[in-house]
Amino acid sequence: MSSIHSISFVQHSTNPISPRVWGLNWNSSGKNLVTCGEDKSVKIWKLNSDKLEMIQKISGDQTRAIRYAHFSSCGRFLATASWDATVIIYEYIGNEFEEKHKLEGHENEVKCCKFSPSGEYLATCSRDKTVWVWQVDEDGDYEVLSILQRHSGDVKFVLWHPDHELLLSGGYDNALRMYYFDGDDWVSAQDIEGAHGSTIWSADFDSTGKYLVSVCAEHVVKIWELTSPLPTSSAKLLNIATYEIKDTVWPLYSVSWNPFSNLIAISGGDHHLRILQFNQESSAILPFLSLKLDAEINSIAWNSTNDSLLAAALDDGTVQLVNVNI
């Protein structure tokens, strides 16, 4: 019998004025979670059976809300994107993360930051409508490689392909944009204007990188197939399935594709965490399970190694762990 239920929660923020948790992310071993939010702090948690224990709190380094935090795939580095227009890179030294670099250059709020799977690049995006690709050299120093200015509105997220050197971005201009590396520079591979009818808040690849899922403010979920990804210059996304959540009027803010299955978790303004199933043969998206939490859910992520565990970041300051039994 399939089921979904909350198993535990922790308080990221106890600040009553600005409790909102904006982002979260598991490291690749699935043992650590990072959370960040409106209280300008970053917290690192250890997963102990079905509970989270805080192991480090970082605050005072960035002066406005911290929108997103991302572990590098090796787990040694952590990047945090803040509305104060900076990105900070932390390195795990001894037994905690220490500030290593502060990356400046965006004009205003940075909304997302992601290390590429190889660790060679870091992508950042901002309300200034740009996507920046930073190159990381052997000494761990960062240099701006490309500034991509194709969006006409703020860029809500960046996303790397799991295998190929492809970068994706989406946001307020309702467009999805894909880039590849031509040897010198990151350049456009595809622009999908009107990919959704409203702001695209988030997207995620399945573990094979063959499919992409995207969600938008008008509560529509779309699946895209990545065709001819090699050479990367010919990569194209093709919309193969569309599903509208009919029983809500609120935006979908986050999507996470289960790393081991065809289950897709989505969440948003109506407090619901929904699990959808993607059927490859029929290219159909089917509703599977649903759970209502106590507040708006800004970010969700499946655990990297446990296929039935999800973490959710809420407006009320809590981070919830949810068990999904298939």
Binding site: R20, Y172, G269
Partner: peptide, 14 residues
């Protein structure tokens, strides 16, 4: 669209 965008509103209030 701007007034419905939770992030834009939160950033303005901030």
């Amino acid at each position: 669209k701007q007034l419905a965008d939770k992030e834009r509103v939160a950033a303005a209030i901030d």
